[in-house]
């Protein structure tokens, strides 16, 4: 296992700043890897039978077994597909309505109470209705995810547009920017940090809601894998699905951060380090 090497590398005092830059992210691996190792050792030594909490080696073999049959990829892809489309729809609706609500006091008063009222409804409550309206297949699932993504994005965009510094907007006016130029050169960059944050929050909720959607009746997806593992008494499969969720969730969040980073380089990096 590479874990020990990782661990050793992370524990070594970094001699140069360059190596420290690559080692610092590895520090985050220290805790989970150490815990996994401890559990593996405990099971190997017979301290626990590891039946309900399978050791890493069993999870890994389940994981690779599922991957070799193509089952894992199929389920992961189904889930990604749903999250992806739900995210896109939710972000589009949230961005547009958020921008409209933030645009003026009038549009805010018109839109916001309704949307806040809808936000107060636990989103799972929509499921029966969505199933009646959109059927039991993909559409109802994607729409449920879109609803989950919508609210954080809407709130983020609306709040960001409202709180754009009027003094900065005035600079735009002094240079006679109007309409599209004002949006492109002043408003968009000004709301970008809050927008990226709301996208990440929305994506997080998207991953939550895909699970809810898949629990409520699906024959594919990582959520199905979870339910299947529970019904057939295969805890390793459940943990494997959970690990897959963690990897996909983290990776998708990282992609957003990566895509946004050139737009946010001006932000105070000290605060994020």
């Amino acid at each position: 296992m590479t874990a020990t090497a990782e661990q050793a590398a992370a524990e070594q005092p970094a001699p140069k700043a360059r190596t420290a830059r690559y080692l610092r992210p590895a520090l985050g691996l220290l805790l989970p890897v150490a815990l996994a190792l401890l559990w593996e050792i405990a099971v190997r030594m017979g301290l626990s039978n590891g039946r309900l909490v399978p050791p890493p080696s069993v999870i890994w073999s389940t994981f690779s077994e599922l991957a070799s049959t193509g089952e894992l990829q199929q389920h992961a892809f189904a889930t990604l597909w749903r999250v992806g489309w739900g995210f896109i729809c939710g972000v589009l609706a949230g961005t547009i309505l958020g921008a409209i609500a933030g645009y003026s006091a009038l549009t805010y008063r018109l839109l916001d109470p309704t949307l806040q009222g809808l936000r107060a409804v636990p989103s799972i409550a929509w499921v029966p209705l969505f199933i009646l309206w959109f059927g039991i297949f993909e559409a109802s699932k994607m729409i449920l995810i879109a609803v989950g993504v919508f609210f954080p994005v809407y709130l983020g965009v609306m709040g960001a547009v409202i709180s754009v510094d009027r003094k900065i907007v005035e600079v735009g006016r002094v240079f006679r920017l109007s309409g599209f130029a004002m949006v492109r050169r002043i408003l968009l960059p000004a709301v970008m940090p809050a927008y990226v944050l709301s996208l990440r929050a929305g994506l997080g909720l998207g991953w939550m809601f895909v699970l809810a959607a898949e629990f409520l009746g699906a024959s594919t997806g990582l959520g199905f894998l979870l339910i299947d593992g529970q019904q057939l008494g295969k805890p390793a499969q459940i943990v494997a699905a959970i690990v897959a969720f963690a990897i996909l969730g983290k990776a998708s969040d990282w992609i957003i951060q990566l895509l946004a980073s050139p737009l946010l380089r001006w932000e105070d990096v000290v605060a994020r380090r």
Binding site: K167, I168, E170, V171, I186, P189, A190, M192, L263, W266
Partner: peptide
């Protein structure tokens, strides 16, 4: 016009 604060655009 120049204001009391510099009002530079932080993203540029």
């Amino acid at each position: 016009i120049i204001f009391q604060e510099p009002r530079l655009l932080p993203w540029l």
